[in-house]
């Protein structure tokens, strides 16, 4: 006869191997999918100030302010192996100090089942647009892109750029009035 311990052991081992197998199938069934989608974005109001950055060096750095429009439909990205999307709007630009600057201005978490059709008008940024120096004033080419990090139930964690980007320039002069 088999003892209780032996029975328990084989039930546990079998359950674990079934779980592992299902998890692997869940991962393998979605690993080759293409997650690229379209997004439309636009800037509405763009100003730049020159103020001390007390959160960092305390030197006077350029601080950009902008509001943006964003339209996209991410419903098609969700499947059984997408637990969450982490959306983020990045400003990318070049300055004298740095060859590449990337600043996340806004982000959003969308869980599966939540509304994934976005249509924002004149949104404020979530984070401050501090430059590392004075490279924003009169900067002619700032590119906004929307990306998303896909968080699966189990599997890879890809970061994907949405198709569609928007370039804008900062004004030639600092704004000194309060906004």
């Amino acid at each position: 006869m088999h003892s209780i311990l032996q029975r328990g052991n084989s039930i546990l081992a079998y359950a674990l191997s079934v779980l592992a197998c299902l998890t692997f199938i869940c991962f393998a069934s979605t690993v080759l999918l293409n997650y690229v989608t379209d997004a439309k974005m636009n800037t509405v109001k763009v100003v730049v100030k020159n103020v001390p950055d007390y959160s960092a060096s305390r030197e006077r750095n350029d601080l950009g302010f902008l509001t943006f429009d964003l339209t996209t439909n991410l419903t098609g990205l969700f499947n059984w192996n997408v637990k969450q999307l982490f959306l983020y709007l990045t400003a990318e630009y070049k300055t004298e100090n740095n060859e590449l600057n990337q600043v996340v201005l806004w982000d959003k978490i969308i869980l599966r089942g939540e509304n994934a059709v976005l249509d924002f008008k004149n949104m404020n940024t979530k984070y401050y647009f501090w430059d590392d120096g004075n490279g924003l004033i009169a900067n002619k080419n700032i590119t906004l892109t929307l990306s998303y990090n896909i968080i699966p139930n189990a599997g890879l964690l890809p970061n994907i750029f949405a198709k569609g980007r928007h370039s804008f320039k900062f004004p030639m002069e600092y704004t000194t009035t309060r906004m």
Partner: peptide, 10 residues
């Protein structure tokens, strides 16, 4: 944690 800001020199 996730990277929020990045500056890369030449």
């Amino acid at each position: 944690h996730r990277v929020l800001k990045l500056h890369e020199k030449k």
